[in-house]
């Protein structure tokens, strides 16, 4: 139940920040009675209320011993690592271009997931990057990110 207390605190923070940013919405003469801030304010208040209820409930109920564990989950640092690889793709695509960024992405993820570097894995990454490039750039005619580094 500690998770619930923690999450209720996060929700309260979200509600607070959301409300605070909503004060920045300009008021306009084109507005209706509800106005652009109407719904955001209601949402912020409701979320705060729900958060408080979740939190107090968590305090009051005794911790349930050994809730049925869900599926096997990765420890959080490992999950964040996966996320960071995804995030690194954005600057990579911007600077190195689509094909190279994909090549890196596929190799790094495969390695991160436990595949040892080998000729085979290098070939898979090469083939994968080329396949996606053909699919998106050539077949679908998408203007994929171009390398700023070489441009």
């Amino acid at each position: 139940m500690r998770k619930d207390i923690f999450s209720s605190a996060i929700l309260l923070a979200i509600a607070g920040v959301y409300y605070w940013v909503s004060t920045d919405i300009p008021t306009s003469t084109l507005e209706d009675e509800v106005g652009p801030r109407g719904l955001p304010v209601v949402l912020a208040i409701l979320l705060a209320m729900v958060a408080v209820v979740i939190g107090t409930r968590a305090f009051m109920t005794a911790p349930v011993a050994g809730g049925a564990p869900e599926d096997v989950e990765a420890p959080w640092p490992r999950a964040m690592g996966m996320w960071l690889i995804g995030a690194a793709y954005i600057p990579a695509a911007d600077f190195l271009g689509y094909w190279i960024a994909l090549l890196l992405l596929i190799s790094v993820v495969a390695f991160y997931e436990g595949m040892k570097f080998s000729w085979r894995s290098a070939l898979v990454a090469l083939g994968g990057a080329t396949f996606f490039w053909l699919l998106f750039s050539v077949l679908l005619g998408v203007r994929v990110p171009e390398a700023r580094l070489f441009g």
Binding site: P26, T27, S28, T29, L30, E31
Partner: peptide
């Protein structure tokens, strides 16, 4: 002129500051 007029309209109605 178009931009100035539109900007003035948006400001007068409060849509932008």
């Amino acid at each position: 002129k178009f931009a100035a007029d539109t900007g003035a309209y948006l400001k007068s109605t409060g849509v932008i500051r």
